[in-house]
Amino acid sequence: MSAYQYIIIGGGISGLYAAYLLEQRGITDYLLLEAKSSLGGRLNSAFATDSSGINAAFDLGATWFWEDQQPELSQLIKDLNLSSFEQYTQGEMLIERSSTQPALRTRGFNGESSKRINGGMKALVDQLYARLTADRILLSHQVLQLSYEDHFIQVQVKSQDGQVKNFQTSQVLMAIPPRLAISSIQFTPALPEHFKAQWQNTATWMAPHAKYIAVYQTAFWRDVHLSGNAHSSVGPLVETHDASTIQGAAALFGFIGVASAIRKDLSEAELMRHCRHQLIRLFGQQAATPLHEYLKDWAQDAFVATRDDLNATASHGHAPASTADTGLWKNHLVGIASEFSPHYSGFIAGAIEAARLGIDHASQKIQSIQ
């Protein structure tokens, strides 16, 4: 049985950043386990070639960060030599209250603009991965069970080919959402009930959402002084934004407001057709012929959403306890996903903060034992 000082469960941004922090401290005695065949978790970029032959990235998951409000994430982006640009907000926005009446044009956004990473959030994932020890990462390995025995945690894993493997560690860093951990992993002995309830009752960021992207030859809405930002009480898109890249690839994206229970009975083609028709209502006939369309329904992603997440609200909740305050699991199991962030729960910056706090906590625990 292979043994490691740390085992990280989840290859999203918090898991990758935790591994990055360990390596920055000279620690390579870790293993990162990711159930999917790719890294990134809830950071997911689609790639398309635009009319000029440019390969452009469009984010299907988390998209924005706020440079002044989120200094730790902003510094990481700079340290990784990534560039960023402001979300396009110039021009008027649209308010749609009826499908039979034109949307109301109104004054656009006035406040601190969010920023996007050049190359999409996948660039952040790729740059972190490039700085890690590749053989410390296992893709397509789903954790089935954690068993605490004789001061060590036995980690049972199933690979894509169905093979069951076992690893050992004294420290597990849980980089998947707390609710997903409770629903997908068996804990032996059981977690303390009040602690388990906190994790179970913490909504998973992104889980109820679905996102639609339409890529166009030109950003035609800008020609008529529209920002691409629209809010609708009609739907299916309740909110749209300009998703164009800094290189000039033109796109609109929107959050789908149709409940996940209804979405699951619609085909992807049908749902995209409804979204496209709404863009025609909002922005005119030029919206009828996108070069590419993408749809990501996070509620249908078994490695993100649980049954309890499907009717959740879109708001970011309060962070649960990252580790148990009593019992055998205390300090041996530490949550580091975005939901555990005390200041930015549910944001990319939250994943960065929670990972750093988790590494600090785990390091102090190990030093106290030594």
Rank of each mutant, 00 (worst) to 15 (best):
Q5Y: 01
I8Y: 10
I9R: 10
G12E: 05
G12Y: 05
I13P: 12
G15T: 09
Y20M: 02
Y20I: 02
L21C: 08
L32Y: 05
L32E: 06
L33M: 07
E34L: 06
S37N: 13
G40W: 03
G40T: 02
S45E: 04
D50N: 15
S51F: 06
A56M: 03
L60H: 01
G61V: 01
T63V: 12
F65W: 02
W66N: 03
Q69K: 11
P71D: 03
Q75R: 15
Q75D: 13
S84F: 11
F85A: 04
T89K: 05
L94C: 04
L94V: 03
R107K: 14
F109P: 08
N110S: 14
E112L: 09
E112N: 12
S113V: 14
S114D: 06
K115N: 11
R116E: 14
N118K: 13
G119P: 08
V125E: 05
L128I: 12
L132Q: 04
D135P: 02
I137Y: 05
S140Y: 04
D150Y: 06
H151Q: 15
H151S: 14
F152Y: 13
I153N: 07
V155I: 10
V157N: 10
G162K: 03
N166A: 08
Q171L: 11
A175L: 03
L180P: 00
A181I: 02
A181P: 02
I182E: 05
S183G: 00
S183K: 13
F187Q: 05
T188K: 14
T188L: 14
A190T: 12
A197C: 04
A197P: 00
Q198I: 05
Q200I: 00
T204G: 02
A207N: 08
K211G: 02
A214N: 10
W221S: 12
R222H: 15
V224C: 12
H225S: 14
L226D: 10
S227N: 07
H231W: 08
V234C: 10
G235M: 11
T240A: 06
T240Y: 03
H241Y: 15
G248Q: 13
A249P: 07
F253I: 00
G254F: 02
F255R: 01
F255W: 07
I256W: 01
V258E: 04
S260M: 03
I262M: 05
K264C: 04
H274R: 14
R276H: 07
R281G: 04
R281S: 12
F283W: 10
Q285Y: 08
T289S: 14
D297H: 00
D297N: 13
A299F: 08
Q300W: 00
A302H: 11
A305K: 04
T306Y: 08
R307V: 12
D308E: 14
A312H: 12
T313E: 14
S315C: 07
H318K: 13
A319R: 07
T323V: 10
T323W: 13
A324E: 09
L328I: 15
N331R: 11
H332S: 15
I336K: 08
I336Y: 06
A337Q: 11
S341W: 08
P342Q: 11
Y344C: 01
F347Q: 11
A354Y: 14
A355I: 04
G358M: 11
K365H: 15
I366D: 12
Q367W: 13
I369V: 15
Q370V: 14
